[in-house]
């Protein structure tokens, strides 16, 4: 048994990176501006828990998502990164089924230095429709972070019929072995044990550990299944639980350092545009 503390996080000596966090719009209005107060609360929360960099996506990602909506959402993510340039970076969210998705990716990722592409549940990750995006990200050396889950309850399945589970991630990785794919929030509520079975043999798929599920052995089981080099710290708005999973995992100092930032820094360093 080894339990780390927040002091161990603050002593790391390198950026502590939350690779999956959300900003939101004022009053939840999809056409509105960035909720400044909420954005600043992220910085306050980060300070309490030793996080130094948040990689953000706007929270408005559900539904059909035509170009105008995801373009506006990315404006808010850009505004957040501009407001806190040393502590926030932005992901480019698109609906890959929209004909202007690639145009948005080129603007944000190539021209505005967004980290990479964020996908939600509009289409499954191994859908051929996504091939151009995944190929482009491989060429540019930028990651793709995708919403994920294996929900076993009827409500979530009905609400998210095209959610990608680990089998879709593994299939996409086989088609696009040069693309760095990140499966979002292992603790996001689906069957994470099921996910580990597929992730073992998908070496280009990384896993962010965010999510409200804080099962006691989740992290150690994950490390045993896929190793620590593909694990990325993230909160997806569940701050203490996600940090606790990192602190309570049986990791060497080097593995812990990787989880808390070094692994994601290596991803960022592969950028080639």
């Amino acid at each position: 048994m080894r339990y780390r503390t927040i002091e161990d996080v603050k002593r790391l000596g390198h950026p502590v990176i939350d690779c999956h966090m959300h900003v939101r719009s004022e009053r939840g209005d999809p056409a509105g501006g960035l909720d400044i107060r909420h954005c600043d609360q992220i910085i306050e929360a980060n300070a309490k828990l030793g996080i130094t960099l948040s990689c953000v996506i706007d929270l408005n990602v559900t539904g059909p998502q035509p170009y105008e909506m995801f373009h506006r959402a990315n404006d808010r993510a850009a505004a957040a990164a501009a407001r806190h340039p040393n502590h926030m970076r932005a992901w480019c969210f698109v609906n890959p089924g929209d004909p202007r998705a690639m145009e948005e990716i080129e603007q944000r990722v190539r021209d505005e230095n967004f980290i990479g592409v964020k996908l939600y549940n509009q289409h499954r990750l191994d859908d051929p429709m996504l091939d151009p995006i995944l190929d482009r990200c491989a060429v540019w050396g930028v990651p793709v972070l995708s919403h994920a889950g294996r929900p076993n309850d009827a409500e979530t399945r009905a609400r998210q019929p095209k959610i990608s589970d680990a089998s879709h991630f593994a299939a996409a990785a086989r088609k696009h072995p040069g693309t760095m794919i990140i499966e979002a929030h292992l603790g996001g509520g689906g069957d994470w044990e099921w996910a580990l079975k597929y992730l073992r043999d998908a070496p280009s798929v990384y896993v962010d550990i965010a999510g409200s599920v804080v099962d006691e052995d989740m992290m150690d089981r994950t490390v045993a299944a896929i190793g620590a080099e593909r694990l990325l710290f993230a909160t997806d708005m569940t701050y203490e639980g996600s940090m606790a999973k990192a602190l309570d995992a049986e990791l060497s100092n080097e593995e812990f350092s990787g989880l808390m930032g070094r692994n994601f820094q290596r991803i960022l360093a592969r950028r080639a545009i």
Partner: peptide, 17 residues
């Protein structure tokens, strides 16, 4: 805490924060 279903530091971090 929800031990041993849940990992213990989560509740302590909440009290810390």
């Amino acid at each position: 805490t929800g031990l041993p279903f849940k990992t213990p530091s989560a509740s302590f971090l909440k009290m810390l924060a």
